[in-house]
């Protein structure tokens, strides 16, 4: 465990050096959010006070909270770094080291995500307060129960990204698959809470990782419900167990397939 914590510490120190590059990206995040907020303002511009149980304020907060996880966990460690490591053959050096490569990447991902996540959290909260106003239901209890839920949401995102990147053992480029994953999360988790969809899609979302990655954490902050907290945490733990098993199987199969040419 100590070796993984050291990896995380080194990566965290590196990420501080590159924090300025994240600050530049905030501009893009802010304008993208403003466009989506404009869209929701327009949709609510009729006489509807509530759409499927959501007020405009709740909808804007949902969007911002779900986007924090998406943007905040956009570290390249779980995507490009793993993909390039496999494609370039550097993975051959990693398999010989006295640690598990997937766990090493997960710790690296978490450390690299920390600063980025905090910055996006601050920006999104500021945007929420300006364009939607404070959430009346939000209190200290919500804050406390949200921390583990958001942490696990980021962890699931990273693990899913790693799982997709491991497909580079078989396919030339895993980027198209990463893009498809991003779009699925965006459409079914970020743009709309699951209540906006027909019942069949709602059921699929409820039993998919989208629930633990986007809907659950965002809805928890809006509703401040302890019952929802228990449901979300439970589903996140189940998702983590399933993805861990899949990573382990895929990595082992991929590493076995690896051909190393000396030179």
């Amino acid at each position: 465990m100590k070796k993984y914590l050291n990896v995380a510490k080194t990566t965290f120190n590196d990420s501080i050096q590159y924090a300025t590059s994240i600050i530049f990206r905030i501009g893009g995040f802010t304008i993208t959010m403003l466009i989506l907020i404009s869209l929701w303002n327009f949709i609510y511009s009729g006489n509807d006070n509530l759409i499927n149980g959501y007020s405009l304020k709740e909808m804007i907060w949902y969007l911002l909270l779900a986007e924090i996880i998406t943007f905040g966990s956009g570290s390249k460690v779980a995507t490009n770094e793993v993909k390039n490591c496999i494609k370039s053959g550097n993975i051959a050096y990693q398999v010989t080291k006295p640690y598990s490569y997937p766990i090493y990447v997960i710790f690296k991902f978490i450390a690299d995500t920390f600063i980025r996540f905090i910055i996006f959290l601050l920006v999104a909260t500021t945007l929420g307060l300006i364009f939607a106003g404070p959430l009346e239901t939000f209190n200290i209890q919500t804050l406390i129960i949200s921390i583990p839920v958001f942490f696990l949401a980021v962890l699931i995102t990273g693990m899913t990204r790693i799982l997709i990147s491991l497909s580079s053992f078989w396919v030339e480029d895993s980027t198209p698959f990463q893009n498809v994953y991003s779009k699925i999360i965006l459409i079914f988790g970020v743009f709309f809470p699951m209540e906006m969809f027909p019942s069949i899609i709602r059921t699929i979302v409820r039993f998919s990782p989208i629930y633990g990655v986007s809907y659950g954490p965002a809805k928890l902050v809006i509703s401040s419900s302890f019952t929802l907290f228990k449901e979300v945490i439970l589903s996140q733990i189940i998702i983590i167990i399933v993805i861990s098993i899949l990573i382990s199987i895929v990595y082992r199969k991929g590493a076995r397939k690896l051909n190393v040419n000396g030179g």
């Binding site: 480029d173 893009n179 498809v180």
Partner: peptide
């Protein structure tokens, strides 16, 4: 071919976004 098909799928996924919006308004 994979990258082309995936990109078409990527873009097409946004039809769902607009279908949902038009269901609301």
């Amino acid at each position: 071919m994979t990258s082309i098909i995936m990109m078409i799928f990527n873009n097409a996924s946004f039809i769902i976004q607009w279908l949902t919006i038009f269901a609301l308004k």
